[in-house]
Simulated scan of single mutants.
Amino acid sequence: MARTVARELVQLISGLQASGGTVTRDGFVRVVLTGGTAGIEVCRQLAELDSAARSTAESFPMADAIDWSRVYIFFGDERFVPEGHPDRNDEQARQALLDHVAIPPENIMRYPAQPEGQQADGPALDAAAREYETLINRHAPDGFDIHLLGMGPEGHINSLFPNTDELLHASGSVVAVRRCPKPPAERVSLTISAVNRSRRVWLLVAGAAKREAAGHVLDGDNGAQWPAALATGTLDTVLWVDRDADPTAE
């Protein structure tokens, strides 16, 4: 699944760059990455495809390839831990993809990290949410071209969990999350309204433990109970599943 998604991403991003049909008409493709096993594996596959495209560029100059200098990278959520912590999505994406492609550092929009000596659930968490919202308003004023989403077995996306205020009542584009059911308890996340300002939303779902949730998403069931069912792109919404997670499989 990850390999297929990565190939489709290369075609989509390079096609948007060639046509200029980006959500903000500046030729920059705005991509929101997701963490988790499937999301990071997609990052690894993108790095491999990019390496292959560069190594064969002279022989096959027309092969699809991403111009990383015209990509803005965002993250759907982040664990509010110190910079460089192995649990941070940006750190995992750096190791899997971003260190291996020619993307300018200023094109990578990271969430602020937990400052040294400050409590994770204190005012710094709210400040981090405000700062990332300002960054989005500056660099993605019209939304995103594509938002990749992982999904938990209970249907959570980003750090938006079932029947929580952060899912159902958050305003704006970014919300501070406290008392998260999964550790660490403090996170920063895009809101569902920010997700739904994406032209394309792709959900990446792998494993038998997520099959039930994938079925509820496919059927468009109660979004308060199954948050992924609320995620829709303005042009395109795709539920990518592997064999074990496929709710239509016999």
Rank of each mutant, 00 (worst) to 15 (best):
G15A: 09
G172W: 09
V177W: 15
A176S: 05
L160W: 02
G36M: 07
N163L: 13
E133G: 01
P247N: 12
C180F: 04
L16Y: 10
E48S: 14
E166C: 02
T232F: 11
G233E: 09
L204F: 03
G36V: 10
D50T: 06
S198F: 06
E154R: 07
A140H: 04
T56H: 12
N107D: 08
P227Y: 09
Q118S: 13
A231D: 06
R178C: 03
V71N: 07
L230Q: 10
P153E: 15
V188I: 10
E83K: 08
R138A: 15
D242I: 07
S171P: 01
V10K: 04
D165W: 07
E8G: 07
Q95N: 09
P112W: 13
Y132L: 07
T37I: 14
V31A: 03
E116I: 05
I103F: 02
I103S: 07
I192D: 02
P183F: 07
A176G: 01
A213K: 05
F75G: 00
L230F: 10
R130F: 10
R243C: 04
P153W: 11
R30E: 14
R211P: 00
P112C: 04
A206W: 11
P227N: 08
V81S: 05
E133K: 05
T134V: 13
A6H: 07
A96M: 06
P141L: 07
S189C: 00
S69L: 06
R243N: 11
A38M: 11
A38L: 07
G220V: 03
T134I: 10
D221Y: 09
T24R: 11
P61E: 06
D142H: 12
R138V: 08
A128Q: 06
R199V: 01
G36I: 12
V32D: 04
R44I: 02
A213Y: 04
L125V: 01
D99M: 12
G35M: 05
I66S: 03
T234W: 01
P105Q: 14
V174A: 02
L33S: 09
P123H: 10
R88I: 13
I73T: 08
P82I: 01
H156P: 04
H156S: 05
R178D: 02
I108F: 07
T56I: 05
V217L: 15
H169W: 11
P115V: 03
S173Q: 12
A113C: 05
V205C: 14
D67A: 04
D242C: 10
H85T: 00
